[in-house]
Design a protein around this nucleic acid. Structure first.
Ligand SMILES: [Mn+2]
Ligand SMILES: [Mn+2]
Ligand SMILES: [Zn+2]
Ligand SMILES: [Zn+2]
Lengths: 137, 137
DNA sequence: TATAGAGATTATAACTATTCTAAACTAGAA
DNA sequence: TTCTAGTTTAGAATAGTTATAATCTCTATA
């Protein structure tokens, strides 16, 4: 369980000033039992529920971008109209529930590692993402 | 090599009136040697190059949606700033070249089939997509 | 501790992709 | 040929995101 002090130094250590907005967002994102997936709007709603001083949408976008660049978040590509982010930055894949419009983590052991026999010339692999779309049987 | 007659009946058979706009779009999409990937804007540019009578953007969107629903196209989920479509509707996966911003088909034999040991309760798999992001070595 | 200035926040404008609307047009059944 | 459901179209509307530029704040240093 991290506290404000920890987030301050984590931010400072990565070259980001520990402002009260960023610390609040850290608490919401990284102080949870479980990792989770969110869209910017969902995050904005959580923030507005959990805080009195509002944080502007621009700051939420800026902060998520900053955390993404630092590797504290991952961006998930669903067939989509908006971006989704993941507080689970380990290697893992996803189910996407088309009925509930919901992402579900797949434990890495639940899918055999993807074996790639050949990559395009002079390219290296940056990431491998498996997205399994599911719907009601 | 299909001709206009073929596209007309293909369209008619799927309950779509063979309009000149749709036939033109069929020619551009399905009369090629190779399958390919495109965004709506790229398609619009190809159309404007290859035809004198312009086709409205709305019609291009409508037509791509219709073809998608009929299964003549697949939608590809890359990092989601816009939608990409694929004239290759067989099961296959993709490299995404982050430098050239370009999708490359992976032959199905080049990646071992993805084995999923468990799906969420009362769900069935609709699709399995592997996206391998690559960049210059 | 006070100060200066780089870095951060903010409201709002701008932008882009996509969908909606409603009027005009057209394929094709009868 | 006529009629009408289906289609196209320009343009408006919407949604997500990024840019702008004024204001604010964190913190290094005097
Ligand atoms: Mn979509
Ligand atoms: Mn993005
Ligand atoms: Zn996840
Ligand atoms: Zn493809």
């Amino acid at each position: 369980m991290s506290n404000i002090k920890d987030f301050s130094s984590k931010l400072r250590n990565s070259g980001l000033r520990p402002t009260k907005q960023r610390i609040k967002i850290c608490e919401i994102l990284f102080n949870k039992e479980k990792t989770f997936h969110f869209s910017i709007n969902e995050l904005a709603q959580i923030i507005s529920k959990e805080t009195v001083d509002k944080i502007s949408l621009a700051t939420i976008y800026n902060t998520v971008q900053a955390f993404l660049k630092k590797g504290y978040l991952k961006e998930i590509s669903i067939n989509s109209d908006k971006s989704y982010y993941d507080t689970n930055t380990t290697n893992h894949h996803h189910f996407y529930d088309e009925d509930k419009k919901e992402l579900i983590d797949i434990d890495y052991e639940e899918v055999e590692p993807v074996i790639v026999k050949k990559v395009p010339p002079s390219k290296k692999i940056k990431s491998i993402e498996v997205l399994i779309k599911v719907q009601n049987r």
